[in-house]
Amino acid sequence: MIPLDLIQRTAEVLMEKAAIEIPQDYLDGLKATAAVEDGDLSSFVLQAMLENYEAAKEDRRAMCGDTGCPRWYVKMGNEARLEGGPVGLEAALRRATANATNNIPLRPNRVHPLWRTDHDNNVGINAPEIEYAFEPDSDWIELTTVHKGGLFGTDYRMLFPSDGIEGIKRFYLDSLVAFGKRGLACQPAIIGIGLGGSKDTCMVLGKRAACLRTVGDRNPDPKIAALEEELKELGNSIGMGAMGFVGKSMVVDCHIEVGYCHTGGMQMSVHAFCLSSRRAVARLYANGRVEYRTDPEWFTQYQRRETVEWNAHSHQEESA
């Protein structure tokens, strides 16, 4: 049984780590981007960001003043047992979100969409989002918090099979150019693309592609992996860098996730995870052990399965 107070304490640590510590994969990716940037202003911006990450860690203060909208991804092993059950878990995550907002502090971003009521704790109706997934043959629970900025850089479009790869590229560029000017998307970003599913799953997949995969990770389908590389290069060839200044640093990496969709459609969503790509992960065991990391390892073979039945053994053989 995984104790409830362990869940809440761990969640509070994750909130702090996400807000303050830039994940190593993004940092390495941004350094590689900065090394080849030759635009004067764009280059200055990237150097300032690299200094900013250091300042945040030294001072233990949030790296960005807009600390985004905290959300939770929960992955439960099929054999995991939680004290208080799922309702207890959700209460613990809401408490952790409110406490951390006050203690770090974070910006209390969450308000009612119409009445603009602010509880000053990032908790309210349907906030924070808590999403779930399950994993076979495991008895741990994994908590991932993502604090993604919320205003610019994301779009959705219903494309059709006849739009093809050329149509995908067009909408991808439209999104980058539209939100890249003046740097509204806070690029260079991890761009996540959702293809297929339904409109809602397309958005969910694209957001997870941006937020739950690390820089350098590739889709296991070799042709999708090649498209990820191609789109990354394409984004960096626009001629636009950080803050929309002349440069070539727009995309730190590009990730694509797919879902089976209606035979007549090809839904597409684009998401930008910004210069403050805030994510932190912990795996909790029943014996109280907690392992922290920054790679959510969300998209396992099980999450991407396409067969009716799940047979772990045959999947392992396929990938071997």
């Binding site: 911006v45 900013n52 945040a56 949030a62």
Partner: peptide
């Protein structure tokens, strides 16, 4: 600058 250099500010 950035955006954003929240810690430097």
């Amino acid at each position: 600058v950035g955006y954003g250099t929240g810690a430097l500010l």
